[in-house]
Write a protein that binds this DNA or RNA. Structure first.
Length: 576
DNA sequence: TTAGGGTTAG
């Protein structure tokens, strides 16, 4: 018999002995969808405590699950605590839910103390309990500990990991940037006879696409059909985004066609990905057309779609147009979020209109939005770019006073800004300070430092720092090499710069357009035209061309009176 | 009744 659900408030008013069937349905529904308000969940708990007989442990667990669905982890833990104070029976499932809440709140220490209690009370933790704990460790940047716990559990046969266990760990590794380790675990699970499912493939494909290893991702997509794992709309969206990022538009169109043939309707994610991709390419008209098309097809743009469009305008320097998108979306009842504001603030800062950016920053609390580290970092960059380093300092202090936790990205912004504002001493003491605060410098941090030292006449120190990178466990990337090569060129050490360039290639660090242009400009400055010719040919062979700085340097040389035969020969190569 | 995946910003 169908049981008609009465409204939540009717249920609360009703007599307990008449409510049980409705109550069970209501709880099941709320555990899946969550309550409309947190207060409703608390009212439900109070009502449950009054019921005679007391609801079962399953029903209390459903109430906790409803709070997890609402992402109200602290509230769930406080209900869990009340349950124990009131001696309401709990079981391994209730404990596992509580452990999950601790992990979501970044309190793995509490989660482990709950595990201890489970053991003490004679319950047997299951694969879900341990999977949740492993995930908690990964979230808290403890991938090494997570891996060792997982291995120990498998070795001692405490749990038989299932596809969700593997997916949880693989995803955790991917989100922390360890794609290679994740792929190794993916292969390990296959060897151990645990068949990956659509979720597994989506996790790995996502990470590979993010690392621009789209060919590898496409290989996995083929593997899916070979092993009978059906792709879903997310798989298509991930691959479409991966292909957009490497500008393989023909393949994007192929995948969009294939999707439709297989009856997967492009959804708001698909269209937002396309709007973002066109925006990043500067094709703002195409981005607008995508939005029109999606509306025609009954897929309504959301805040992400409009944010992508606004960012597209900002990248073209058209901040006022981006601003009018904000009005459009608000008019359609789509409220801007933190990211909308961050995009506009960045747009204004890039146009050097920092005061407009600060205005927006001040408006955020009025819209119920709290600025994030990204907001502060963007405005700091704006102040530094416009030479307003004193205001940058004040703003930095205000950020710390607000309790915003520094991250490496913001430290890099501070370092770069201080150097570019000729505050080398302050930059160096900031570098020491960040390390004292437990922030490990990134390879990009060292590139900034090397660049700053070179520009401040401290080539020797930059060179020593560069040479010390391997001891610190860091592999110089193309940017780090470029900064060092530029420093050497500026000091007339062309031979050493070229040697470093060869070393870079030998170390499998692929040269980009930036490093070629840097070295070529070095040769031009020091009138080593023969070497410049060799480099230009090599650069063109790799599909790169002279950038604005190199071209204008060359044109300047042509205009000067000191023209010589080699220079003319070189210019002919450039401007046939 | 407990654990897993896709779109935007520095």
């Amino acid at each position: 018999m169908m049981i008609r659900l009465r409204s939540f408030s009717t249920f609360l008013r009703s007599n307990s002995d008449q409510t049980h069937p409705q109550f069970e349905h209501l709880l099941l529904q709320k555990s899946r969808l969550g309550f409309d308000k947190l207060d409703d969940a608390h009212l439900m708990f109070d009502k449950m405590l009054q019921l005679q007989p007391l609801p079962s442990v399953t029903e209390f667990s459903q109430l906790l699950t409803s709070l997890v669905t609402m992402k109200q982890y602290s509230a769930a833990l406080s209900v869990f605590r009340d349950m124990r104070v009131l001696s309401i029976p709990v079981d391994i499932i209730t404990f596992s839910i509580a452990i999950n809440c601790c992990c979501r709140l970044n309190r793995v220490d509490y989660a482990f103390s709950l595990l201890g209690e489970i053991m003490k009370r004679g319950f047997l933790p299951n694969v879900v309990t341990y999977t949740t704990l492993v995930r908690g460790l990964i979230i808290q940047d403890n991938a090494v500990e997570a891996e060792s716990l997982f291995k120990k559990l498998v070795r001692l046969n405490v749990i038989q990991p299932n596809v969700v266990t593997f997916n949880t760990i693989i995803d955790g590794l991917c989100k922390k940037g360890y794609t290679c380790v994740a792929v190794a675990l993916f292969k390990y699970m296959q060897r151990k006879g645990c068949k990956p499912d659509t979720v597994t493939y989506n996790i790995v494909i996502h990470s590979l696409c993010k690392d621009r290893l789209v060919d590898y991702a496409l290989g996995l997509f083929d593997e899916m059909s070979e092993s009978g794992v059906a792709p879903d709309i997310r798989t298509y969206n991930l691959l479409i985004q991966g292909l957009c990022n490497i500008n393989q538009w023909e393949d994007v169109r192929r995948f969009l066609r294939e999707m439709e043939i297989r009856n997967f309707c492009p959804n708001v994610h698909t269209f937002s990905i396309l709007v973002d991709a066109y925006g990043k390419e500067g094709k703002i008209k195409d981005a607008e057309d995508v939005i029109e098309l999606m509306i025609q097809r009954g897929q309504y743009p959301n805040v992400v779609t409009y944010n992508s469009l606004m960012d597209g305008y900002c990248l073209r320097g058209e901040v006022d147009e981006a601003f009018s998108v904000l009005a459009t979306m608000t008019g359609k009842g789509i409220l801007p979020d933190i990211i909308s504001y961050n995009i506009l603030i960045n747009g204004f800062c890039k146009k050097l209109k920092v005061d407009r950016a600060v205005d927006l920053f001040q408006q955020m609390p009025l819209q119920g939005l709290a600025p994030t580290i990204e907001t502060y970092c963007t405005i700091l960059q704006g102040f530094f770019h416009t030479g307003r380093h004193i205001e940058a300092h004040k703003f930095y202090k205000a950020m710390l006073n607000k309790g915003i936790e520094l991250d490496i990205f913001t430290c890099n912004t501070m370092l770069d800004g201080l150097f570019k504002n000729r505050r080398a001493t302050e930059a160096l003491s900031f570098f020491h300070l960040m390390q004292c605060n437990g922030l490990s410098p990134h390879i990009h941090t060292y590139s900034i430092l090397i660049d700053g030292l070179c520009k401040n006449g401290n080539l020797e120190k930059a060179r020593t720092l560069f040479q010390s990178l391997p001891c610190k466990g860091l592999r110089p990337d193309v940017k780090a090499y470029t900064m060092m090569i530029r420093g050497l060129c500026q000091n007339g050490l062309l031979f050493e710069a070229n040697e470093l360039f060869q070393e870079m290639k030998a170390n499998d660090c692929l040269p980009d357009s930036g490093v070629y242009n840097t070295l070529i400009r070095g040769c031009l400055y020091h009138k080593n035209y023969n070497e410049a010719v060799v480099l230009i040919d090599e650069m063109r062979g790799r599909g790169f061309s002279a950038d604005v700085s190199t071209t204008s340097l060359l044109l300047g040389l042509l205009e000067s009176k000191e023209q010589d035969h080699d220079l003319l020969a070189l210019c002919k190569r450039f401007l046939p």
